[in-house]
Design a protein around this nucleic acid. Structure first.
Lengths: 235, 235
DNA sequence: CGGATACTTCGATGGCGGTCGAAGCAAAGT
DNA sequence: ACTTTGCTTCGACCGCCATCGAAGTATCCG
């Protein structure tokens, strides 16, 4: 018997709630007040909606003093949101290619907590081709070579593996129609990019702006070429 | 600016409408009366809902005499439905693997109009490995080798290419987290499987039941092995 | 041609749920 | 200790929309 899809759909069918969910798609944790501003509603209305989203298991909440920080519950929630964005975009602009219309978003964007878009997919497939990563059925895992590779990069794999989430997870990428890397390792990669200053997050969207040298370093590190080496952003 | 996702979500947030949409996920064309039965509502209510789904571009309708046949508008609609099914399933049964719970659905099922599940993914990747198919960015296309391969199978590629849809299209598979083949060629493959009697459709679900010999023939034809050669269904 | 069937339209009904003013509790700051 | 800020709860209001009886149009069949 099919699961009931109306429950989840209804949670996303409200303007205020959808705005808050989309604001969280960048993977950031936002407070109730910030989300109320995002959705342009009062604090009490936001409180009511957020309660529904948490009970509905689409969001998780963490309390710090008087502040409550909300985040998307899982990668699956993020993916559904991207899927909705995709279809909504197609219906609005039928001639558009799959995925976000914005070329910047297509190139590199934050999906939840990891790198997506052309660069995200390029990374994943490069790792596959170099046999650092292996797919088996719906599982993805590092090979022995891959373990050595990332260990040499300074990744504490033992620590990452202690997390409740899988180390490597395949995330379906809507702009590229292929897979990019999610999971603890995917998150590490994004964090590393940011820590190294190779790219910066866009405050108002999910775009990840790579610098010229940052892009080159990223591609060199993971050994692949992009379809275009031309970049936005300054060095 | 993000597209408005509430419109699509709201169309799927109603019990009656979601039932009708899911009934159409197998790719069949159903009449308004059949859909009203599916959703357990009166003809007038169904008419009202179907009108919304057609105007909302989730369904297309074809009139034959006094009968009106409805179908899902596109692969994207099917994919969003699968994505919703997936998350709804995860929320209901957190320990479940991604994708349908039913092993039969995971093995081989109809996704819209083509083969999905383990077999669908196996096919796609086998074609890639044999270099009959090539991926480039978000496009998928037959290679010269691939053209020869399918021509030798009796596929009229010139005819398929005349269709408004792409010949090959990557469809993201929720149970396998990888890609299976959609598009005109994906449809041809499914039709060929059915025409040859290698498998039969399940009347009450999207399961595709392969016969023992049919499975062997399919794997031999496309040159790949499944994780298990054991099958349900009789020869 | 008349009756049956498929589907549509109209309009009324009533349940649902988003919204916010008012009030309250908890944490932080002065 | 008092004030400010973050967030929650309560309850009333009102707009939205699914639903179906009634009636109508179009097509099919004997």
């Amino acid at each position: 018997m099919s699961p009931d899809i109306t429950f989840v759909a209804a949670l996303m069918a409200d303007q205020a709630r959808s705005r808050m969910l989309l604001a969280l798609l960048s993977g950031k944790a936002l407070t109730a007040t910030e989300l109320a501003l995002e959705a342009d509603i009062t604090a009490q209305t936001a409180s009511s909606h957020l309660s529904k989203l948490v009970e509905g298991q689409l969001l998780v909440v963490r309390k710090q003093g008087r502040h409550k920080y909300f985040q998307l519950q899982s990668l699956e929630v993020a993916q559904l949101l991207e899927s909705l964005l995709n279809l909504s975009s197609v219906l609005t602009h039928p001639k558009a290619r799959t995925g976000p219309a914005d070329p910047l978003l297509r190139k590199s964007r934050v999906c939840y907590d990891h790198l997506a878009g052309e660069l995200g997919v390029g990374l994943y497939h490069s790792l596959l081709e170099q046999q650092l990563l292996a797919e088996h059925s719906d599982q993805v895992m590092l090979t022995k070579l891959g373990v050595d590779f990332f260990t040499a990069l300074g990744v504490n794999l033992a620590e990452l593996e202690k997390q409740k989430r899988p180390l490597c997870k395949a995330c379906l990428d809507w702009s590229e129609r292929r897979t990019h890397l999610a999971g603890a390792l995917g998150q590490w990669v994004l964090q590393d990019i940011l820590n190294k200053g190779w790219a910066v997050r866009d405050n108002d969207s999910r775009v990840l702006h790579f610098h010229l040298k940052g892009m080159a370093s990223f591609c060199k590190r993971y050994r692949f070429r992009t379809s275009s080496e031309a970049l936005t952003g300054s060095d």
